[in-house]
Design a protein around this nucleic acid. Structure first.
Lengths: 233, 233
DNA sequence: GAGTGGTCTAGACCACAAT
DNA sequence: TTGTGGTCTAGACCACTCC
């Protein structure tokens, strides 16, 4: 029988409360002496648990101010955050807007990969400074996110809505180059067959499929950059 | 004046010896009690330094066996390893081969980004089962890798040669979709203007530019997949 | 000033694996 | 068996930063 170290049990307890949403971003977690009393251990043991979580970006620790749950899922790799188009556009100083082109509720088909049961199918155009920037096709599982059936995706784009309502625990990205089909070309204002960058994204929450999204960008106007320092985690 | 914690100084010292090549992969580093004596500190301080390095994958610790430098740069992200085309092809059970199309030595120009001084310019075609798979254009800095001037890139592809001779410490990838130009279309056997996935890669070693590489793949035949579990580092 | 985290000590016992 | 790392303690002092 393997005994789990106490510091890892403490870290796991906290991580679980963050993952479950019980402790939301910005929530101030108990100070070290409180946790020390709760677990009946030395302060260093608690400190190690919290330091590990901080090193992984789940919490932020500041002297005097205490320890708070780090705000949104902090992803170290630049590629993880790609699909937040709105942040991307606003980050480069452009005005973001979007248009909901189509919306339907239907049963998941065989090709809908991680999703089953009923899904919401959406088609959204993202615009930067009023010009087409990306065409998004998305399916959202109503099993994983029942509120999606009545959510107002004209006000908030589906990606942002999902991030706020049903954060994912696993994701898969697929990046490819495709020629613009008729619908894409029309939506993005491109010639038929123009080279586009396509990002497909599937996410899961605790093993259950949440969403599938395909975002297509004009090849000439968009690229992905990732920087690595292998010795820095 | 900021004082660097001792545990980080210890970790930094070790990391530097690994990065410089003084301690190669597999090298057994001093045991905790030796380092304790060397730095005149408590064993826990050394332990923390080594634990941090182990958590980052630079070293591997095993009871009784001691602590050894981890074998090659361990990259957790799937995207870091993309440009090792040979491994990619062989990993899917195809036969890898390559053809050196062009080779020249010249001075670096303005557009050659991280590179300065004299460079080797190479153009290589990668083949899977004898069929074109990717077209690679590469520059190698002779300042960073002087042996590149006489290396035999017909036997070993430039990417593999570099990895063995001048490992990088930092890298940047850029991923985009482009239409095939005449040279690319001819090399890969595509129609002019076909959608291609282009990977650009720049690497540095301790701040000095090592190489720039651009690899172009037929869009229909290649895509990138990355999987993430945000709670797992 | 006072509350909080950051680091460090000098021990101790245990777990694991190579011999 | 024994060398090595893994964890833990019960303190201590310091550094930061909010009040």
């Amino acid at each position: 029988m393997e005994r789990e170290p106490l510091h890892r049990r403490i870290a796991g307890d906290i991580e679980r409360r963050i993952a479950s949403g019980e402790w939301r971003p910005g929530f101030r977690i108990p100070i070290e002496t409180e946790l020390t009393a709760e677990y009946g251990c030395a302060r260093m043991t608690v400190s190690r648990a919290l330091s590990d979580l901080a090193a992984r970006g789940l919490i932020v620790r500041r002297r005097r101010a205490g320890t708070v749950v780090a705000h949104p899922p902090v992803h170290s790799s630049a590629l993880v955050s790609i699909p937040d188009i709105q942040a991307e556009i606003e980050g480069r100083g452009s005005a973001y807007s979007h248009r909901l082109l189509a919306r339907a509720v239907r049963s998941a088909r065989d090709g809908d990969s991680p999703l089953g049961g009923r899904v919401v199918a959406l088609e959204t155009l993202h615009l930067a400074d009023g010009l087409p920037f990306a065409l998004e096709r998305r399916l959202i599982s109503l099993d994983a996110a029942p509120e999606a059936e009545t959510a107002d995706f004209e006000t908030q784009a589906p990606g942002g809505w999902l991030l706020a309502h049903t954060p994912w625990t696993e994701a898969e990205h697929r990046i490819s180059a495709v020629a613009a089909d008729r619908e894409t070309a029309a939506g993005l204002g491109l010639a038929l067959g123009a080279a586009c960058l396509k990002l497909e994204r599937r996410t899961w929450r605790d093993g259950q499929g949440v969403t599938w999204a395909s975002q297509t960008f004009p090849g000439a106007a968009y690229d992905l950059v990732a920087r690595f320092s292998p010795t820095k985690g």
